[in-house]
Design a protein around this nucleic acid. Structure first.
Lengths: 226, 226
DNA sequence: GAAAGTATGTCAGATTTCCAACAAAGGAGC
DNA sequence: GCTCCTTTGTTGGAAATCTGACATACTTTC
């Protein structure tokens, strides 16, 4: 069990919890470490959503079957990553997705109810864990709304500017480096890479932005690139 | 204070908490009921994100200024509605939005830290509140990912089908009623109403769906409308 | 029942985006 | 230096969307 504490200590869910405390905590919460063979399910669609999963080794795929049964991959979760937390915390009766081991893997399953219900021992790390869980889900929330704000814009150019102005605001600077290459940015905004490149060029010529590589600068309409 | 307990008891954040407990709880949490005059701020961009707000009467507008200072309205919150919870729970240092009273209004402000940190009295409703808060944010999370899944589709027709198949799955039935009229559905999917209507017609002619008003039925490709 | 107002379906032209292919620029390895 | 490979910019024709206008159906009001 201790072999996985390195992974766990890097996971935001366990931030502020020492390795000494982890053993106690997992014990207190009834956390179960399970090994899943490649291709086998961690949980299946239709199961009750009871668990928050943490990948310890290997990778887990979250898949979804639509009404006709066509399967699509939603995410691939790497070691240290969480899965199932939104369903468990939202209190959905049955899972609308399945989790399948892409490789042989080890996962930690935490009973969501036991995480949320304070134990009688009043462990200090217990409330810390709830804190971290809530924080993680709230942060994801903010990321999702940012993305929706960009994608809701009508034109590619507006999507791009919405994204860049958001970045400028977050960095509190007109100049900043974005964590995406062109393809990834296009995917994020839900547009075509080539069309987006063209729009970037237009914006540069119009003197509204300046960029090289993933370093961008937004310019106020009146004052041009210096 | 008690005059607002009707509103609070209908708010998901306080579900499972009796009116008798509310007074104790608000006291324990140091919840402050404040009246804000029309046009005045509840909080301003740049403030630390400490509070979860609940509108008790009137309406509150959440607004956002982009990097150039152009203001846009993100949401309008009605009585019973929450605001600021994602920022407070995500632990952002400074708020990227402002909350302005659209009308004279009363709001309840809960210190997020005190909500999360169990009190020394070990109130039973305390953990219930955290439960509810987490559940609400997780549910919003699921709604946002559903919307993104629809909006990420390339064509209007694919967006529509993604939405309808999701609805069919949620209702566990090929036939269901959607909670939107055509305009609202188009806005949700981020497309033009008229273009969407045209696509609905195409899908009907192709025998893939059937609908009248907001009642839809998805059909399997082989068997046509009965 | 008539009239007014709203929601929905349909259509043509203008605009935008996608697609596919290619050119140019940069990096890694040799 | 060179080549190979990846990333990014550019372009033209095809496809999809938006725009605005209008017709039709349905509701509401009087």
């Amino acid at each position: 069990m201790e072999e996985y504490f390195d992974i766990l200590s890097q996971c935001p869910l366990f931030s502020g919890i020492s390795r000494q405390e982890m053993g106690l905590m997992l014990n207190c919460l009834g956390g179960k470490i399970t090994c899943i063979a490649k291709g086998k399910p961690v949980f299946l669609e239709g199961n009750p959503a009871l668990f928050v999963g943490v990948v310890l080794s290997g990778t887990v795929q979250i898949v979804r079957d639509d009404y006709y049964g066509n399967r699509s991959v939603l995410t691939v979760v790497s070691p240290g990553g969480l899965f199932g937390e939104a369903f468990a915390c939202a209190g959905v009766e049955t899972l609308p997705v399945s989790a399948i081991a892409l490789q042989n893997c080890a996962v930690l399953l935490l009973d969501c109810k036991r995480v949320l219900t304070g134990c009688s021992n009043a462990c200090p790390f217990h409330s810390r864990l709830v804190h971290n869980l809530l924080r993680g889900i709230a942060q994801k929330n903010l990321m999702l709304t940012s993305k929706i704000r960009c994608m809701s814009q009508k034109t590619t150019q507006e999507k791009l500017m919405e994204f860049l102005l958001e970045q400028a605001k977050q960095h509190d600077s007109a100049e900043f480096v974005i964590p995406y290459d062109r393809q990834a940015l296009a995917d994020y905004l839900g547009v075509e890479r080539s069309a987006m490149s063209a729009e970037i060029s237009k914006l540069k010529k119009a003197g509204r932005i300046d960029c090289s590589g993933s370093r961008f600068r937004v310019l106020t309409p009146d004052k041009k690139s210096s």
